[in-house]
């Protein structure tokens, strides 16, 4: 961080948010507003099949024979509002190739950071902590994180896996502009992908106490003929004592990534 400093961040004094709000651990209490804005604090999770494929799809066998039904993909009606993703013809071919080689190419297989919006609808919970001029989102998967800056710090110095998120409120909706994303992440397990021209605009709108309506507009002129949208509800995890636990999957993929370099037989 020290190398990227700039005096432009001198405003970083943070007032404490005294939220009389609802806690993830006590979901029975209704959410009170925080400084006049909706209180999105809590642990949330998507419950749909976007993780396997954003587009409408039938159920499908596992690409790995050994795991049988464990690795099969459940069917889903899709979350793309216009049905299919409006790919450019070349990009569509790339998507199909990605799909064919998904076991080799899907960054999730290697426990890589998921990017945005994929982090939102993976089958793991995530926690929102609304802290003054910063909104923290911690994802259980790979301990991925995002900080949403409610004061725009200016252009990110470098592209990254999770991008730079800048937020503002439009009425009851938290709008997050996500830029500086790299081209290494996918949208799902079906090979849907993007370039480093990706720009995502997310909208988080509370709909009742325990539901956030989530929408993401995807723009990438290198890959798509026009912007397109996904839309889905996010649900509060109401489970007793709910909390995030660790899913530090790096250790779980070491054999996959480094097994070929292992000494055989070991000393």
């Amino acid at each position: 961080m020290h190398q990227l400093d700039s005096a432009r961040f001198a405003w970083l004094f943070l007032p404490l948010v005294c939220a009389s709000g609802l806690l993830a651990q006590t979901p029975a209490k209704p959410a009170g507003d925080i400084e006049g804005h909706p209180n999105l604090n809590g642990i949330w999770q998507a419950v749909n099949e976007a993780n396997w494929n954003l587009e409408p799809h039938a159920a499908e066998a596992s690409p790995v024979v050994a795991v049988g039904a464990l690795g099969a993909a459940p069917a889903g009606l899709g979350v793309v509002t216009e049905g299919k993703i409006p790919y450019k013809p070349e990009a569509l071919k790339q998507r199909d190739q990605n799909y064919a080689k998904r076991i080799e190419l899907d960054p999730e297989v290697k426990c890589y950071l998921p990017g945005v919006p994929r982090a939102t609808y993976m089958p793991y919970p995530f926690q929102i902590v609304q802290s003054g001029k910063f909104i923290f989102i911690g994802y259980e998967y790979a301990n991925a994180t995002r900080t949403i800056y409610m004061d725009n710090p200016g252009e990110a110095p470098v592209d990254s896996w999770m991008g730079q998120s800048v937020g503002h409120w439009e009425g009851r909706t938290l709008v997050v502009d996500v830029t500086s994303l790299n081209d290494q992440t996918w949208f799902d397990r079906a090979g849907n992908f993007h370039s480093d021209k990706l720009h995502v605009i997310e909208r988080y709108t509370p709909s009742g106490r325990d539901v956030i309506q989530y929408e993401a507009t995807i723009e990438d002129p290198n890959t798509f003929v026009r912007p397109w949208k996904i839309s889905m509800p996010l649900y509060r995890r109401l489970d007793k004592n709910m909390q995030l636990l660790e899913f530090k999957c790096v250790e779980m993929v070491e054999e996959l990534l480094y097994g070929k370099y292992r000494k055989k037989p070991a000393n």
């Binding site: 404490l16 948010v17 939220a19 709000g21 925080i34 902590v129 911690g138 994180t145």
Partner: peptide
């Protein structure tokens, strides 16, 4: 490190 706080939650990041 960054510390976030809201309600009864503190995040040490």
């Amino acid at each position: 490190f960054q510390i976030f706080q809201s309600g009864n939650t503190v995040v040490v990041f």
